[in-house]
Simulated assay, not measured.
Amino acid sequence: MSVKKDDLVEVISGKDKGKQAKVLRAYPSEDKVVVEGVAVVKKAMRPTAVNTQGGFVEKEAKIHVSNVMLVCPSCSKPTRVGHKQGELNGKKTAIRVCKKCGAEF
């Protein structure tokens, strides 16, 4: 999965198409992500010791990673992501590369 926590992404399909926001959480085993302010749903909560009032709470739902596109930090455009071999702290690793401008991130 090319998208990680704290990445800036743009939603490319669905009711929130066109929004740019930060990834709050990534679920690689499910190929899903939670994006800030996207796919907001209302959830009914029972009263508890912490939340004595109860009621409806708005929270972000998971969306499939194919519905978001990573925004390149250097060219500020949504882009496909390539991978290339590189070194990080003396270890060989895959580095993400922008397909439009070639910048690494």
Results as ranks from 00 to 15, higher is better:
35 V>W: 01
58 E>S: 15
36 E>W: 00
37 G>S: 08
24 L>V: 12
10 E>P: 03
34 V>H: 02
57 V>T: 08
81 V>A: 12
104 E>D: 14
89 N>Y: 11
65 V>R: 06
62 K>N: 07
102 G>T: 13
3 V>W: 05
74 S>L: 04
3 V>G: 07
72 C>Y: 01
12 I>N: 04
23 V>L: 03
27 Y>D: 13
89 N>L: 09
20 Q>K: 13
90 G>D: 10
68 V>D: 01
71 V>K: 00
104 E>L: 06
74 S>Y: 04
39 A>T: 06
40 V>C: 01
13 S>F: 02
71 V>R: 01
68 V>Q: 02
7 D>Q: 12
59 K>R: 12
105 F>K: 07
61 A>S: 09
17 K>H: 06
15 K>D: 06
72 C>G: 03
92 K>L: 15
24 L>P: 05
52 T>Q: 08
13 S>A: 09
68 V>E: 00
42 K>R: 08
29 S>F: 07
78 P>C: 10
19 K>L: 14
69 M>D: 13
99 K>T: 11
90 G>L: 15
51 N>D: 12
26 A>M: 11
13 S>M: 06
5 K>C: 04
42 K>I: 00
7 D>V: 14
72 C>E: 00
27 Y>I: 15
5 K>F: 03
11 V>P: 03
19 K>P: 05
98 C>Q: 10
49 A>E: 14
11 V>M: 05
42 K>G: 06
29 S>A: 14
21 A>R: 09
97 V>A: 04
64 H>G: 06
38 V>N: 00
79 T>C: 07
73 P>Y: 11
34 V>A: 07
101 C>H: 05
19 K>E: 06
102 G>E: 13
11 V>H: 03
89 N>V: 07
40 V>K: 00
58 E>R: 10
92 K>Y: 10
47 P>F: 02
57 V>Y: 13
7 D>I: 10
14 G>R: 03
23 V>G: 02
53 Q>R: 08
66 S>M: 09
70 L>Q: 09
84 K>H: 10
81 V>W: 10
99 K>Y: 15
53 Q>T: 09
78 P>V: 07
55 G>I: 00
36 E>M: 04
40 V>A: 02
72 C>A: 04
26 A>Y: 11
67 N>G: 11
11 V>K: 02
38 V>W: 01
36 E>G: 00
86 G>H: 08
59 K>W: 05
65 V>F: 02
52 T>F: 05
33 V>P: 14
78 P>M: 10
63 I>Q: 01
100 K>Y: 09
102 G>L: 15
95 I>Y: 09
71 V>H: 01
62 K>L: 06
4 K>I: 09
33 V>C: 13
35 V>E: 03
84 K>W: 05
3 V>A: 10
72 C>R: 02
